[in-house]
């Protein structure tokens, strides 16, 4: 039996806490010239949680997370919600493949997902008149991708240490 079925409360607490930390990273004050280096931690965590327990956390989870991120970031309501829903949809429909990939293969796959996320968010924002430059979009995709192996091994170790697998 998986951890999520044995201790659902503990598991969901872990998910919520990780997302709260990611939200803090999303709004932490950065100097304007380092803004582009901000990783899309919320998107990475949504990918991680959806791929690890797709039978419990799916598109509605991603949508709600995205809505909260929109509220927190003061962006257009629904921009992150839509982007994360699309990412979650791809994850739910192909989690078996993603799980079986090697870590570097997975990282390449994640870069495509984060890129898609950035594209959709930027598209929604530009409908309201806020268009970011291509460079800043690419930079955050690269930073987020580089963070994936670190995040993956960190969370894996954490869950193994506390027997939360």
């Amino acid at each position: 039996m998986m951890f999520v079925e044995k201790h659902p409360l503990l598991f969901y607490t872990m998910v919520v806490v990780s997302l709260l930390i990611a939200m803090l990273v999303a709004i932490a004050p950065f100097a304007p010239e380092y803004q582009v280096l901000r990783p899309e931690l919320v998107c990475l965590l949504v990918i991680y949680w959806v791929v690890s327990v797709p039978q419990h956390l799916g598109i509605s989870f991603a949508f709600l997370t995205g809505l909260v991120q929109d509220l927190v970031e003061q962006s257009i309501w629904g921009a992150h919600a839509l982007a994360l829903s699309i990412v979650a949809y791809i994850c739910v429909s192909s989690y078996q493949r993603i799980k079986s990939y090697s870590i570097w293969h997975q990282t390449a796959w994640v870069s495509v997902l984060v890129g898609l996320h950035q594209l959709v968010v930027n598209w929604m924002q530009s409908l309201a008149g806020y268009r970011s430059s291509t460079i800043s979009l690419l930079a955050s995709v690269i930073i987020s991708t580089l963070l994936w192996p670190v995040l993956l091994s960190g969370l894996r170790r954490l869950r193994q240490n506390y027997r939360m697998i």
Binding site: I27, A28, V36, E73, Q74, S132
Partner: peptide, 9 residues
């Protein structure tokens, strides 16, 4: 107390 994180916003 805070600044919106999007540099465009």
């Amino acid at each position: 107390i805070g600044v919106a994180p999007d540099p465009q916003l």
